[in-house]
């Protein structure tokens, strides 16, 4: 057999493996943001400002956790097709280190006061809904199905957070100031929501993933409309942080994972 035929054969077998490895990474990007945000919302349990918010915030957290589990389950299956050792949702959630997490930096930012938590949710929820909506048209049927289920839940998240942004923006002087400060502080983490990673270009070209950059104009129109009603604004600064979806995180994620992963790491042989 000639060297040329060898190379073709190698491409034929390695190409799907490379595609699956990229797809698994893209699925982790979809899984890790809701997973990390759900973990942050868990930190509020028992400490919310009003009982109705204990219910609503935990509800949002439960939705996000459920979505993360669906994405992680699929990521594990796709990863196994590459010949990698099989990892289930718990192996992926509890036995990866921070540099292997693919969440956006926004969701790992600490809870702060309730304004900071709601600002984080506001920037994220609108982008999350637009992304999921676009993913319902993915050529990958599993992705489209998970997105279709999730987008209904996130529509409620958007409605709830919009109500709070308006209430706090157009509430008291103190709530307005706190809300504006929180929006300003987290604004530089919004750019990453709309970055198209060069490594994902093939999946975008194949119609598996949407181009995220194309979602930003709609997102800006949506958030600006709510901010106007709330008598709030977003900063004009162009500087944006990035890197979370490629595994380069802020200092906060390591602490979050240390807490979240403690038991499975301390007792690797245990089943819970």
């Amino acid at each position: 057999m000639s060297a040329a035929v060898d190379a073709t054969a190698a491409r034929a077998t390695s190409a799907p493996v490379a595609v699956d490895a990229r797809l698994a990474d893209a699925l982790l990007q979809l899984a890790d943001s809701p997973l990390v945000l759900a973990q942050r919302l868990c930190e509020w349990i028992g400490k919310g400002p009003v009982l109705e918010e204990e219910l609503a915030s935990t509800n949002v957290g439960l939705d996000l956790l459920g979505q993360a589990r669906l994405w992680l389950g699929y990521a594990g299956e796709v990863e196994a097709r590459t010949g990698a050792p099989s990892r289930d949702e718990d192996a992926l959630a509890f036995h990866r280190d921070q540099q292997e997490f693919r969440n956006v930096l926004l969701v790992e930012q600490p809870n702060g006061d309730y304004a900071m938590t709601l600002a984080r949710q506001f920037w994220f929820d609108h982008a999350h809904r637009l992304l999921l909506d676009a993913l319902t048209r993915s050529r990958d049927e599993r992705i489209a199905a998970i997105a279709a289920k999730s987008v209904k839940e996130v529509a409620y998240h958007v409605q709830r957070v919009d109500d709070w942004i308006v209430r706090l923006g157009d509430g008291t002087d103190e709530s307005h100031a706190r809300m504006q400060r929180a929006l300003d502080a987290l604004w530089p983490y919004t750019g990453e929501l709309f970055v198209d990673l060069p490594a994902d270009a093939g999946l975008v070209a194949d119609g598996v993933l949407p181009a995220r950059a194309a979602l930003r104009a709609r997102w800006l129109a949506e958030v600006d409309a709510v901010l106007a009603t709330a008598t709030l604004t977003h900063p004009d600064t162009a500087f944006m942080h990035a890197g979370g979806r490629e595994g380069r995180h802020t200092e906060h994620l390591g602490h979050l994972l240390a807490e979240m992963q403690f038991l499975p790491r301390a007792y690797p042989d245990a089943r819970w």
Binding site: G48, E174, R178
Partner: peptide
């Protein structure tokens, strides 16, 4: 901590 949220 939640007083300002409820007041708003």
């Amino acid at each position: 901590d939640g007083a300002w949220v409820r007041e708003a």
